[in-house]
Design a protein around this nucleic acid. Sequence first.
DNA 1: TTTTTTGTTGATTGACGCGTCAATAAACTT
DNA 2: AAGTTTATTGACGCGTCAATCAACAAAAAA
Lengths: 193, 193
Amino acid sequence: MPKLGMEPIRREALVKATIFEIGQTGSLDVTVSQIAKRAGMSSALAHHYFGSKEEMFLAAMRHVMTIYGAEVRGALCLAQSPLERIEAILAASFSAANFRREAVGAWLNFWVLAQSVPEAKRLLAVYQRRLRSNLLVGLRPLAGEEAEAIATGLGALIDGLYLREVLKSGPPDSGAAVSVARAYLAAQLREKV
Amino acid sequence: MPKLGMEPIRREALVKATIFEIGQTGSLDVTVSQIAKRAGMSSALAHHYFGSKEEMFLAAMRHVMTIYGAEVRGALCLAQSPLERIEAILAASFSAANFRREAVGAWLNFWVLAQSVPEAKRLLAVYQRRLRSNLLVGLRPLAGEEAEAIATGLGALIDGLYLREVLKSGPPDSGAAVSVARAYLAAQLREKV
DNA sequence: TTTTTTGTTGATTGACGCGTCAATAAACTT
DNA sequence: AAGTTTATTGACGCGTCAATCAACAAAAAA
């Protein structure tokens, strides 16, 4: 009994199922049938809405990055000072949400995907530019001309800390990651004076 | 025309071919036939020497990490001072060898593999402990008790910088990566005084 | 010399996956 | 009422792939 206007619903369900299955498997080795089943439809329908599996992956990637972007924006709008802005970004980057199996699987696999799929690389570049720009808004009042260099380091440090927390055995410790990032920042800023 | 003592030769050829193909494809989506062909033998022989594809991946991973370990050791034995030790590690981490397609593909995909294959996770943990320990030898004379914390940050920063250099479009700039790491170090050490 | 061990492969198996297509049916349009 | 668009799926073609096996070749051991 086909109801009209299913497209957005189906697409969203497929995107979420894609992310879930990637997280579950830990790799991009998921079948369209798996995804479709999880989303409650036939694989043919999945192909109807997204032309190919790759399109599903890219849509999932956009979704993950959109969510992360929204989290950061949400945290930023409460920030009152430059330092609070940076703290907000750190908190969002190491939030529990980002350490869920699905998010972890998504990020790690998107890094891999970026190697062979230009569009995936483009999306990652967008994410990095946004993060950098957000950091700079907070850093410029604190560090002036050195803000650029500090932002470069801090951005990389965030990714590296994330990677470490995610790959170590045992539950990730976001507090520790934030502390290290804070220490980096403190050292770089103190140098200013 | 079977010659004796082929096992080590075949295994090495397969390991190198595995790394090459992963780098070429940019993913773990390589077939045993591809690998075997590249290594100049039939896929059946590949299965004969390694029981399964996963074993090939793990052997390849060990190989990549062994190479990297050797590079670091080689650079370290020339180091005369604590600071030179750290510089040596940085140079090795961002060496041209590590930015080859094959090395990049290997590292990124091993991070993904670690999600689902415990042995892969274990190997990565070994690598991280070794890096940390190497850093500490250099850091302790310079930073005393704070060495541990600095090593944690520096280790993560190295991974993060590597990731950034690798994922950006255009050729990687190892000089830039080393500069950022050096700046981090300088800031953390100056704080001491 | 016979036997065993080691090296090697073509062919095969059994399974699985992506993407397509024809067919069905409900909802809108005219 | 007839036609069009949207939603939906079962079946399937065509290809792929990991792993196995039987069989053959050459060196080593007995």
